[in-house]
Design a protein around this nucleic acid. Structure first.
Lengths: 253, 253
DNA sequence: TCAGGAAAGTGAACGCTGTTAACCGTAAAC
DNA sequence: GTTTACGGTTAACAGCGTTCACTTTCCTGA
């Protein structure tokens, strides 16, 4: 749980921070138990009434947002830990470990996954609230790709070769990623970020939503297939057998 | 709209069929206008009260299911039409045309798309209701892949080389697809079906849900990239420039 | 043709949701 | 020590899916 003991804050502010933290924790506990998330459910479990929550969150949607943010943050710690089980000089192993952990977490916690990633189902365009919530996990994956690129320097599309819209998107990205550390002439790497994230997130979303033969989901073979398809893009074709073994080890764990 | 004039049905049954058709039509109109789908909204618009709808649908979820089915059916007609704009002996063009039409329709009708495809968000496992609703569109795409295979005979994984779970899944598929016409020794083709559907549906879902840079979505470049990545699997690498042109023509239409 | 019965629809009600308003005690702030 | 603002309450509104009891209507079978 997030620690709140900043002495620069007044006592009231600290207590307030503590309460909002308890709200988030309660909400997380609720939907971990399979209970439908609702203001009343959270309030009742905290020994309060529903309207009291409006002193802390402006609306139900805001509660969902802050809970989603926290879930993403905590889950990303798990992905990071999975990556850290491999040597720092083995970024490829770190990426596939984190990616597979992401996939396993999503399937084990479909409700949480839906909240974080499938949340903004057709909301008014122009609001990029969703992109903000997907900070931690996306940042982690892109950073791991960056580590691979630093080591192997796989070929990356030249910025000038990219279509105009994509070029603008990699030069001034909205996706949360440490982009400043990429030299301008290699910003094509951000396009690889997006490709990888699309592949990973795409197959995981389908698996979680159940839009696949249950036996294929259970076996994880489609996930393996996507990893295998994408590996060459990161110049990891040679290393594939070893990486696939890492993936399968986690799949059967 | 579905015609209901089967003379083998009694008058009452025909009237009943007409009413349920009107219910579905009203629901479709509702959420085409951006109105949140609800039993009361549908009933009121039809000049009825909400409980009356229970004479026709068992629950709200069943209403959603039947509406989703109808939406999928109608939309698939559009994909089919897009495919039919190309010659019968050009199945590759037909496939990319249908796939691109699918993508454009999904982005133009995100609410309908979510209803059909993102509907079963974490429902009790064991119910494969979702797989049933995704009949028409999935069937169309797989059939188009089959047409390509018949013409070009691209290499397909041998059934015995497939992992056990995948093997069972291609021999006795749950995914709705005309599978009987595939000789048993070439059932690895079903695995290609699944791969293709995963790629198409994965990227489109991400685009519709807004989990991508808006400029990239707008340009459709990620969709093009996915098509380009998957083409070699169908042995379409040589034909790619022409096919990409077909895609882009529809993107800017 | 007429009685019987099923089908279709209504109104009231239950329990649930998010949300707003009015109100009150208490604890922090000056 | 007074005042203010914060955190909490209860009551209420509108809307949702759903159920029950009741009525009307229209089709069917003898």
């Amino acid at each position: 749980m997030t620690q709140v003991d900043d002495p620069t804050l007044t006592r009231r502010e600290r207590q307030r921070e503590g309460t909002v933290a308890e709200i988030v924790a309660t909400a997380r506990a609720l939907l971990a138990e399979g209970v439908e998330l609702s203001l009343r459910a959270v309030a009742t479990r905290m020994g309060m009434t529903a309207p009291a929550l409006y002193r802390y969150v402006a609306s139900y949607q805001e509660l969902v947002d802050v809970v989603a943010f926290e879930i993403d943050r905590v889950a990303t710690e798990g992905f990071q830990a999975a990556a850290d089980q491999h040597a720092p000089d083995d970024p490829a192993a770190r990426l596939v470990a984190a990616g597979t952990e992401f996939r396993m977490w999503a399937l084990a916690n479909p409700r949480e996954f839906s909240l974080v990633f499938a949340n903004p189902v057709a909301e008014p365009m122009g609001h990029h609230r969703d992109l903000i919530t997907v900070q931690s996990s996306c940042c982690l994956m892109t950073d791991l790709i960056f580590e691979i690129w630093q080591q192997r320097r796989f070929p990356v599309p030249a910025v000038d070769d990219l279509p105009p819209d994509v070029r603008a998107s990699v030069l001034e990205p909205l996706i949360p990623a440490d982009v400043d550390k990429i030299p301008l002439e290699h910003r094509g790497l951000v396009w690889v970020y997006m490709q990888g994230w699309t592949q990973l997130y795409g197959v995981v979303t389908l698996e979680v939503m159940g839009h696949m033969d249950p036996r294929v989901i259970e076996s994880g073979e489609m996930f393996v297939d996507v990893v295998r398809r994408f590996a060459p893009t990161l110049d990891l074709a040679d290393d594939l057998p070893r990486l696939e073994a890492i993936v399968r080890a986690r799949l059967t764990a």
